[in-house]
Simulated assay, not measured.
Amino acid sequence: MTTQMLAIGDKALAYVQSGSGPALVIVHGVGGHKEDWAGVAAALSAAHTVYAVDMLGFGESSKTGDDLGMAVQAEALLALLDAQGIDQAVFVGNSVGGWVTATFAATYPERVSRLVLIDVAGFAAMFEGEPPVNFDPGSPAEMQALIDITINGPVARIPGLAEQAFAAYVASGEKAISATWGRSIFLSARLEELLPQITAPSLVLWGADDKLFPSILAGVFSAQIAGATSQLIPDAGHFPQIDQPEATIAAITAFLS
C-alpha cells in the first residue's frame, strides 16, 4: 500500500488506506508505526475502509512544532475525517494511540461510531515514580529493554531487532523530538478526565501478560466508560496486535459485528 499525506497547516499526517465500507481509523502507540498494523488492517479491511495513521511526530508524519500532545493528535484525526468526507468512524488505538483516540472520542463524540482501546496509556499513575524502562532509548541495549517489556514471544528475540529498531529510531528523527514529545504528553489531559466523557460503544482490550501496564486496568478503565466492556487477550503483552494478531482481529471483529 502506498503512503498518502494529508497537509494540516504546516504539518503533514501520513496514512495508508485499504478496503471498503464504513471507516475505521487505527492509531499506533509510542515506538510503533502504521506498518505494525498491516496484518490487522488487512483483515479489518474486508468490511471497512481502514485508515492506519502515523501519529504526528512518528513514522512518515511531520516531526515539527512545539506541541504534539493528545489534543493536537486528535485534531489531526479530525482533519483526516473531514478531508475524506467521513461523518463517523470506528477508532482503534493502542497504548498512547489509545490515549489519542480516547481524547478524540471525548472531544468529538458525534464523529465516533465505536471505540476500541488496547492497552491504553495516559492515566495519572504513569507519571508517578521512576518509569520501568527508558522510553527514549539511547543505545541498542536500551532499545532491547524496551522491546522486552512491550513485546512477548519470539518477535522480541529476533536477532538484530534491537539494533535495527534503534537505528531506525534515530534515522527517522523521532529521537530528536523526544523532549518535545515528553513535554506534550505531560501536559495532555489524563484518562481519568477523558473516559467518563466518552459516549460511543466501547471495548477495552488488554494483553493478559502486559509487563508495562497490568491487565487489571482493563476492567478499571472500562468501568469508567458508560456501557463499555473489557476483554483480555491471552499470551499477549502491551502490543496484542503483534503478539496475538489473530486473537486481536477476532475480538475487534466480534465487537463490530
Rank of each mutant, 00 (worst) to 15 (best):
D136L: 07
D67S: 03
G57P: 05
D82N: 13
L232T: 05
Y169W: 07
E142V: 04
G69K: 01
S184Y: 01
G19E: 00
A41E: 12
G207Q: 07
D82S: 13
F91R: 05
N152T: 11
D210A: 06
L6N: 15
I177S: 00
M1Q: 15
G138Q: 00
E163M: 09
A162P: 00
I147A: 02
A74G: 08
D87M: 11
N94G: 09
D10I: 15
E35R: 14
G153S: 09
L232P: 04
D54S: 05
W181F: 10
E75P: 13
L44E: 06
P234A: 01
G29C: 06
V50H: 00
E128R: 12
D243A: 03
K34C: 14
A189C: 11
V16S: 07
N134F: 05
P245V: 01
F104K: 08
P234T: 00
L56Y: 04
G182T: 03
A168S: 07
A121I: 06
V16R: 08
K11A: 15
S257F: 12
Q84V: 02
V30E: 08
L146I: 11
A76L: 09
A218I: 03
Y108W: 14
L203D: 02
A41Y: 08
E60R: 10
G98T: 00
L217Y: 12
A189N: 13
A247F: 09
A74P: 05
A156V: 11
A106Q: 03
A200Y: 00
G237P: 04
Q88Y: 07
G65T: 00
L44A: 04
T3N: 13
I185P: 09
E163N: 13
T150P: 03
L77R: 01
I185M: 13
E35C: 12
A171E: 13
I149L: 10
I147E: 01
I198N: 02
G138T: 01
I158K: 13
V96I: 10
A124M: 13
K211D: 11
N152W: 07
D54P: 04
A124Q: 14
E246K: 12
I149Y: 11
A106E: 01
D82E: 14
I242H: 06
I118R: 04
A46C: 08
T64V: 15
D67L: 00
G31T: 03
Q231H: 11
K63P: 03
V90Q: 09
A23G: 04
E142T: 07
F221C: 07
W181S: 04
L203I: 02
A38S: 14
A171M: 06
Q17A: 15
F104W: 10
P240D: 10
D10V: 15
Y169M: 02
D54I: 02
E130S: 15
Q241F: 14
N94R: 09
A43E: 07
I151W: 07
H28D: 01
E193K: 15
Q17W: 11
E60M: 10
T2G: 11
L256T: 02
F221P: 07
G219T: 07
I185Y: 10
A71C: 14
P245S: 06
G85D: 03
A102W: 03
